[in-house]
Every structure is written in C-alpha cells, then in structure tokens.
Design a protein around this nucleic acid. Structure first.
Lengths: 246, 246
DNA sequence: ACAAAAGTGTTAATAGTACACCCATGA
DNA sequence: TCATGGGTGTACTATTAACACTTTTGT
C-alpha cells in the first residue's frame, strides 16, 4: 500500500480526542512593577476564576505560534508580528488532570507562551473574558488550571532571558534613555542595578542599543541633566551576559 | 448552570481532532562524536524514512512527560526515572503541515524531548521501528516530518546546557576522570578545551563532582599517570558558567 | 629511561564591583 | 544656586586564557 492510499483510508476519529490550546503570560512594566495580564474567565471550565489569557488552536488552519499571535492581538491589541512586542514559546503542559474536561473524555494540552510588551493601557476585555487586568507578579491570586505553575515558569524565563538577550528592549519604546532600560532590569529582577556599570556594559555590547538624535524632552521629567537617547541596536544576544545580582 | 452540569453535557467530539505525540532526540557519546538515535519508520506516514523515535501520548492516562519516559524505555531500555539518564522537554511543534495526516483531517502536535544517556550498546529496534541506529550529529540524513528542525533545536539546547548546568554528567558513568568529563564537552561542542583550566573550573564549582576512592584502573588505559576519580556532586547548575570557546 | 597521561604554577588580559566625582538642566 | 538626575573616572577584585612545568604510571 502506498502512503497516498494509506492516507485515504486513515480515520482520525478512530483515536480519542485531544484539544490543543495556547496560554499567554503577557508581561509589561507599570511603574516599578513587572505586571502580567490576567483575565477573569467568562466561560466554563473555571468560570469566574482568574487565569492567563488563551484559547484553542484553530484546527487545520493554525500552528500554536499563529494562535498565540492571534490571542495576543485579541486580548491586548498588540500585533507581535509588526510591533516591538515579543512572543515566544515557553513549554507544553499536558498532565491529564490539568483540565476538568478530562472527566468528559477530552485531554487538553496547553502550549504556553511568554509575551513582552511596552507599557500598555488598561487591559481590554476579550471575547471570552468578563474582565481583564494587569497584576504585579508579586500579587497574583490563585489561578485556574495549572496557570500558577505556568506563570512561575514564565517569570523565571523572563528573568533569565534578561541576562543573555536584549529582551529588555521589548519593554520600552524608542527613543529611550539608559536609565529607562536599567529600570526594566530593576523591575524584572526586583534588585537595584549599578547605573554606572550598567551603562558601560550596555554600551560595550555591540548592537545592544544605537544612539538616536535627541528628540524633544520627555514629558514627565522633574529636572536634572537630560539623558542621551537610544533605540534598539539589532543584536539579539548579550555576550558576555549581564549577570543577575545575588 | 453549574460547572458540574456543564461538564456532563460537554461533548468533546464536537471539536475536530488533534493528536499529540512525543518525539525524542536521544543523545549519547560514542568515541569522540555526539550521536543521536534515529529509527527507520516501519509504518506510515513516512514509512522507510529516518526519523527521531517517538509515539502517541496515551489518551487520558499520560502526560507528555510520561509518554517520553515510556518511549525512551521502549527504544533504549533506559529508565530515566531511575537511572543517570536525563529527559527534558524541548518544545512543541504544531504547524498544520508538519504531518501528512493533516490531509486526512488530523492535526498532529508533537512535543519534543531531549534525552542524554551514557554510552549505550548498539540501538535496540522498537516496536514500530524496522531499524534503529546511533548517528553522529554531523552525519544525519534528511529526516521525516520536521525532525531536521527539531534535531537542530535539540543539538543547540544540549550545547547551551553544558555551559550552565551539570548535564555533562549524564553522558558518563561514575566513577569517571575529569579527562572523561572534559571529552564530553569537547565532543558536544566540537572544540578542544584547555585541560588545566577545565579541571580548576570544575573543582571550583561546589557540588559539580565529588571525589571517589580510586577503584581498579580502567581497562583500556595505555599508560600514563592514573587519574583521580569522581562521581556526580549533586549540584544542577554551574555558576559562573563554563563558556563555550568562540 | 622514556613516552604518555594527569595534575600544578604562573602570568597577562579581561571583566565585574564599588564608589567618588563631574555635568547639564529646571525651578 | 541648589536639587536632581545623567554621565565619567578610577581603584580594586575576580575570572579567564594561555602555556610552561612537575608528577606518576606502563613499557
């Protein structure tokens, strides 16, 4: 039998069904806090509980990456394909008991993503979310499904990536000062970073940032020497890395 | 309607079906080469082509982690739960066109794993594999599905993990000499590593290795000063990391 | 004794840390 | 001119990289 013939006779319904979803840990900076987007679930299962935004991968038409981009756009209005935002796979979560629909015979596998975005306005409620809110990662309530675990993994991933990638750039909008960039590190790590050494380190890393002609002074400034301004420099990695204090 | 009622009326067959598989990139050291386990597929799709070993997640009974452990045991006889071997999730691959069964209406999502194991005997053919073979990562033929991509990602993951974890220990069996351990780095990275600096670095990392009373001399030695022998030291991370040359 | 493999010493260069100090602006 | 935030200098320490050298074994 040829592969073509075999495919014609193949019945996908002869196997029990899985569902595949994506869940997004979307991070932004608000004030001095690293915040994550939470939605209050409008539908079962876990209706009324806080959870990470997410949804089903559209069968036959999407990869999980596509679905994650679509959900990010729906929930936040951010188009990661075009904007400064960043969206990357974290891990797959597949324990049979992670979703109550297993009791009805459906095993739900979730592919989790981490998204980074510059400061966003107060969250937009999506279609299946009765409410949506930015919450500091230190003040997150108990979440639905295994989202506590996913979020913990996501936060650790974000913290680790600041060390050896230029992902901090996704939290700011050009033009930015090195102080703004340093505050990203301080907010994500929850540690203060030496301004002088940070500046030298960033400028010594080829392609981390590129200087920009100084535009108008930023609005909320309270005096002091105006900063030099920069934009993203094109490099993706920082080598040697910026080590996390402690 | 309560969640309990909603669940009773929920029909999982009302959604189109996904299948969830695991694929394993199993690495070992043979001679001076980093090798990966390949199987020749005995069934459609892609019957007769080389591929990474893998199989379906058993519906309702397994997580992807469970399935990966089961497949590793079936393909290599290695029980990663009990032995020195190492098994960790890599990423999920979900493009609709990655598996020909999409043409029959089934979207197959694969969760890929990386396994590390000390030198194994010539590969055991599994149930659905007509043939199985260890292949140096530099001499891998074109693979079925998107396994070329998965393997490339897996190799990069293994190389990167040597830098900041003690995962090299999974390639050797205690007791081992620091030269053996260094050869792991050299084989995986394809670069020579300074013996003197490597030794100091490993011994200076708390918990990387622990000394062991010298047992009988290893069989295949050709003379020269006998090495001091070590076992795993319990630590999981190497900080500061062992940087890859270049 | 000699070759081979393991292990030690030494030094220059690089990278990181801490903190003092100078600069440019708004009020 | 003073408070404030931005930017530079510098001394000290830690880490890395390179390579010469000593030790312990088999033949």
């Amino acid at each position: 039998m040829s592969e073509r013939q075999w495919l014609r006779e193949y019945d996908p319904r002869s196997y029990p069904p899985f569902a595949v979803t994506v869940d997004l840990a979307v991070f932004t900076l608000r004030g001095d806090d690293l915040c994550v987007l939470l939605v209050r679930r409008g539908e079962y299962p876990h209706r009324g509980r806080w959870a990470l935004p997410g949804g089903h991968v559209l069968h036959g038409r999407e990869s999980a990456d596509d679905a994650a981009h679509r959900e990010l756009l729906e929930e936040t209005g951010v188009d990661a394909w075009r904007s400064n935002a960043h969206l990357q796979q974290l891990a797959a979560y597949s324990a049979p008991d992670r979703d109550p629909r297993m009791a009805a015979g459906l095993q739900v596998v979730s592919i989790a993503y981490v998204a980074l975005a510059p400061g966003l306005p107060d969250a937009v409620a999506g279609t299946d979310a009765a409410d949506a809110r930015w919450t500091p990662v230190g003040a997150v309530p108990a979440l639905a499904f295994d989202h506590d675990r996913i979020l913990a993994d996501a936060v650790e991933r974000v913290r680790a990536k600041l060390e050896y990638t230029t992902s901090a750039l996704h939290f700011v909008t050009a033009p930015f000062s090195l102080t703004e960039l340093r505050r990203v590190y301080e907010a994500v790590w929850g540690r203060s970073v030496e301004p002088a050494n940070f500046r030298r380190k960033v400028l010594a890393t080829p392609g981390f940032v590129s200087p920009v002609d100084r535009a108008a002074t930023a609005p909320g400034r309270r005096g002091g020497r105006p900063p030099e301004l920069y934009g993203p420099g094109g490099a993706a990695t920082v080598d040697p890395p910026i080590r996390r204090p402690m």
